[in-house]
Design a protein around this nucleic acid. Sequence first.
RNA 1: GCCCCUGUAGUUCAAUGGAUAGAACGGAAGUUUCCUAAACUUUAAAUCCGAGUUCGAUUCUCGGCGGGGGUACCA
Length: 589
Amino acid sequence: MEIQTSIHHQIEKLYGQNIAPEAIQLQKTKKEFEGHLTLVVFPLLKISHKNPEQTAQEIGAHLQNQIPEITSFNVIKGFLNLTLSANYWIRLLNDVHTTEHFGIRPVAENAPLVMIEYSSPNTNKPLHLGHIRNNLLGYSLAEIMKANGFKVVKTNIVNDRGIHICKSMLAWQRWGNGETPASSGKKGDHLIGDYYVRFDQEYKKELNDLKAKGLSQEEAEQQSTLMADAREMLRRWEAGDEATVALWRTMNDWVYAGFDETYKRMGVDFDKIYYESQTYLTGKEKVLEGLQKGIFYRKDDGSVWANLTADGLDEKLLLRADGTSVYMTQDIGTASLRFADYPIDRMIYVVGNEQNYHFQVLSLLLDKLGFEFGKDLVHFSYGMVELPEGKMKSREGTVVDADDLIDEMVQTAADMSKELGKLNDCTPEEAQDIARMVGLGALKYFILKVDPKKNMVFNPKESIDFNGNTGPFVQYTYARIQSVLRKASATSAALLPATPLSDKETALIQALAEFPTAVKEAADGFSPALIANYVYDLAKEYNQFYHDFPILKESNEDVRNLRLILSRNVGKVLYTGLSLLGIEAPEKM
RNA sequence: GCCCCUGUAGUUCAAUGGAUAGAACGGAAGUUUCCUAAACUUUAAAUCCGAGUUCGAUUCUCGGCGGGGGUACCA
């Protein structure tokens, strides 16, 4: 029986009544006090009818008497600190040791299916730092859900149609001189992104020229031929004009090739990709169905709307006056197709918090349309990534490009290990691979350790820091453990002798045993950050232990054996924890 | 205006309503006969303001003040 359960049981026995689980507050004893587990007795005062110290005393005495694993106790104010036997810790370590995938729950045949949408790029510009946070959170959340026994389908919705796509197409047609990724040596997504920027520049120029002739901003926008041409292109695309569709296909393919490269480097992937060009028509259909059923209404100009004022929200446009679809229409179509394709029990959208309102509306609309999953959808909303100078602005060129950033991180990792002489005994290929793992590990950890819902500041200079609360620190700890294990492996694999344990050793075992709880809480709270901080704490704990207790020099066979087994299991948990974050763990570094 | 998120050391981040609010970076001072010093040790430094609920509030409630986002034909 779990020790927590025994304690609960014994307290009920002591007072002769059932006690709610919330009243039994057990926590890890703080470092500065003696003991391993602490019972907070305040909630029990109503039952004991005694003051905190007396209550703690009598519970402590009773527990020590009845539970063999509890060897002693002390009371400080309303806190009962319990000390557990070495035997108990060794048994716990043994459990960790003999459980192959410790902390991971297997996926059952009939497990609920979770679909996670993340990434969701537009095909008119390359991925940037904001996408990196999205992709890392989505991928990590998928891994965490899997580890908690859910079936997971990772999905991506590519926004491959719309006026913004036409802008880059138009700019390329007009000023591109037939430039291709092959002819220019640029990645496809970057090439297209350049033409999107070009459109914006030319458009601004045109507006300024018009305004110089005395037109207002609004009049200029209306008279812009460039924008009119882009709209005309969108109309031709929707009408299925061959040349337009062919151009669209060619340019999108360039972008996809570019994205695939970036995804691969980031180490993220998808089980199923949806394209808005293939879902927006379904969206339109659903909206028109809703219109017929009287759920939506049409205004005089022909546009279609939903009235959500009864639900405390506003009115929402679903189809424009000219009959074309908007973002919301597409999302309805995509959801509809997804639920037709998969038996989804839970739908999670990993999308930035600037769209909180959008998902509130989407949830309501789907529900009104008769999709019962609508009201249960989860918007995993995360905060923006800002730079020390402030918000990223594409127009001001302050956007941090994903590819550039990854290159920079890997290069810095390579430079630093070279400087420290870390990888002198590696082949150049090995050294490069380790630099890749470490550079990416630094980036991923830096972003994932932050509570997702908070905005965060990303300082490119400071992120390339391999000290402190960072991915490389955890990776380093893992690599060091592997190194120790290569030098000497434990003689006996399973049963451990009743060896006396130091405080640091019990602390480490206790930390190991908390891993499954961290995995579960990370899934419940949608928080990879919990895993990140857990893994860091464990690594830190190990480093301190490692420093104070030589392993290979230890002459007592049993003690040495214990420390090796302990090290191996810390390594095992670090490895698993890192993989839940999508971070690789090098065998040496 | 209305709605949502947010406010913790100089900085970037932690803290199921629990003990003296933790780390890291940066600052100051140290530690290599040792298995990896990308490490370890010591040290100074913080809960936006005001009420309320509670044995106990960084955490929950209300009111201010500050920051971010959204708000009907962009995605």
